[in-house]
């Protein structure tokens, strides 16, 4: 098999897969928020949206933010640890 045949097969498979996913999703339309029974804080789409969203984030998702700070710290320390200078670099 040459490259063009392989590419053709791959394209056909991908197309079939996309069509199958499409049919599956159209058959089972996504029941968005059908099971949502809890209260939530809607924000109107306006120019204030970003300010509102960031206020929400600081007020209510602060635990995630602080945890994320430590993830950043861990990644920084990790990069330092991997890129640290070592005496003999050969295997």
């Amino acid at each position: 098999m040459n490259k063009i045949e392989i590419a053709g097969i791959i394209i056909v498979v991908v197309a079939v897969a996309i069509i199958l996913i499409f049919i599956f999703i159209l058959e089972n339309s996504f029941p968005a928020f059908t099971f949502a029974k809890n209260a939530w804080k809607p924000v109107e789409i306006s120019e204030q949206l970003s300010a509102e969203a960031s206020r929400f984030m600081w007020n209510y998702r602060s635990l995630d933010l602080i945890a994320q700070v430590f993830v950043l710290f861990g990644a920084a320390v990790g990069c330092l640890a991997i890129l640290r200078a070592e005496k003999e670099e050969n295997e």
Binding site: A32, F33, A36, W40, K41, P42, V43, E44, I45, L49, E52, A53, F56, M57, Y60, R61, D64, L65, Q68, V71, L72, G74, A75, A76, G78, C79
Partner: peptide, 26 residues
């Protein structure tokens, strides 16, 4: 979720997850 409104919860989740993706990439 509702026409004309957005849920800020998903926005905060996405902001945090972008940062996490950056960490993994680094």
């Amino acid at each position: 979720r509702t026409e004309g409104f957005v849920d800020p919860l998903a926005h905060s989740i996405v902001i945090v997850s972008i940062a996490l993706a950056g960490c993994v990439t680094a």
